[in-house]
Simulated scan of single mutants.
Amino acid sequence: MSKFTVFTLFPEQIENALSHSIMKRAMEDEKLSLNCVNIRDFTEDPHGHVDDAPFGGGAGMLMQVQPIVSAFEDLVQREGRPDRVIYCSPRGKVFQQSMAMELAKEEHILFLCGHYEGIDQRALDILEVEEVSIGDYVLTGGELPAVIMIDAIARLQDGVLNKKESFEEESFSQGLLEYPQYTRPRSFQDREVPEILLSGDHKKIRQWRWEESLRVTKEQRPELYEKYREENPELFIEKKKRKRSKIKAE
């Protein structure tokens, strides 16, 4: 079972977002566990403050070192040190599917959610965080990035999705974007399901899906297409051979 701990000022935001659908079922089935820790519970300030003005001046407030470190020390004493500590930060390395697959191998991950203008650097140093971003933009807090990463990581765990194939053939898992998919009805407003998908020939269907993934990736994310092409030259050589054979047959 994978364990996720989240240090946050707004635990209900995390809990509400992950209390539905697949994530809810996974927690009920004990495939994963979620523990949200309210950082405010660990402040030593008599008024419950967890932030203060930054030294050196500047706009906004910073989350203080003491409540975060106290929360962390309490966690380590009770459960041991987490395998990874991730700080949701716009200055971190960008979260990708490959990172989700790497993190899915860990048993216990701690997410630290910042607010205001950020967190006192000493807290980040003491916790030995890895700074991770979900994109080149700034949000009001780290809760939404934490939810996104937890969802992406948790769904890779055994038993969370119904079938292993559910994530093995989707976008990014093989380096390409996912191929188009169709379901009933067969015809809708003069738009037909591709005939190959109705053929029952699974080998040809797999080939069609791969070629469609190539097409979609080339159109939508050309940099991913070129990377895939460089890493898998033999597949493109084989594709050219099949194309020549088809032309000769015709």
Rank of each mutant, 00 (worst) to 15 (best):
T5G: 00
F7C: 10
T8L: 11
L9I: 06
E12P: 09
Q13V: 15
E15A: 14
N16R: 12
L18N: 12
L18Q: 05
S19T: 01
S21D: 07
I22G: 10
M23Y: 15
D29E: 07
E30F: 15
K31M: 12
L32V: 06
S33L: 01
L34H: 13
C36M: 02
C36G: 12
N38R: 10
I39T: 09
R40I: 09
F42W: 15
T43M: 10
E44C: 11
G48I: 12
G48P: 13
G48W: 15
H49D: 08
V50H: 04
D52F: 13
F55N: 01
F55P: 00
A59L: 14
G60P: 11
M61I: 08
M61D: 12
L62H: 05
L62N: 09
V65W: 09
Q66D: 08
F72P: 00
F72K: 05
E73A: 13
D74P: 10
D74S: 13
L75M: 13
V76L: 07
R78C: 08
D83R: 00
D83F: 00
R84I: 02
R84N: 03
V85E: 00
V85F: 00
I86P: 00
Y87K: 04
C88R: 03
C88G: 03
C88E: 02
P90S: 02
R91M: 10
K93D: 04
Q97K: 12
M99K: 11
M99N: 12
A104V: 00
K105D: 00
L110Q: 00
L110F: 00
L110C: 00
F111A: 01
Y116G: 03
E117N: 06
E117H: 10
I119T: 12
I119D: 04
Q121L: 07
A123G: 08
I126S: 01
L127D: 08
V129P: 04
E130R: 01
E131W: 13
I134L: 10
I134A: 01
G135M: 07
L144N: 05
A146V: 13
A146L: 09
A146T: 06
I148C: 14
D151C: 08
A154T: 09
A154C: 06
A154R: 15
Q157K: 15
Q157T: 13
Q157P: 06
L161A: 08
N162D: 07
S171N: 03
F172L: 14
F172T: 09
L177R: 05
E178H: 15
E178C: 15
Y179L: 09
Q181P: 14
Q181M: 08
Y182P: 02
R184T: 02
P185V: 01
R186N: 07
S187H: 13
S187V: 09
Q189R: 15
D190C: 14
R191W: 14
E192F: 15
E192L: 15
V193A: 04
S199E: 01
D201E: 05
K203M: 03
K203H: 06
K204Y: 07
I205E: 11
I205V: 07
R206D: 11
Q207H: 07
W208P: 07
R209L: 04
R209A: 03
L214I: 11
R215E: 03
R215K: 06
V216P: 06
V216D: 05
E219P: 07
E219S: 14
Q220Y: 10
Q220M: 05
R221I: 09
E223W: 10
L224K: 11
Y228S: 05
Y228R: 09
R229S: 02
E230N: 13
F236T: 07
I237P: 07
K239E: 02
K241G: 04
K248R: 04
A249W: 10
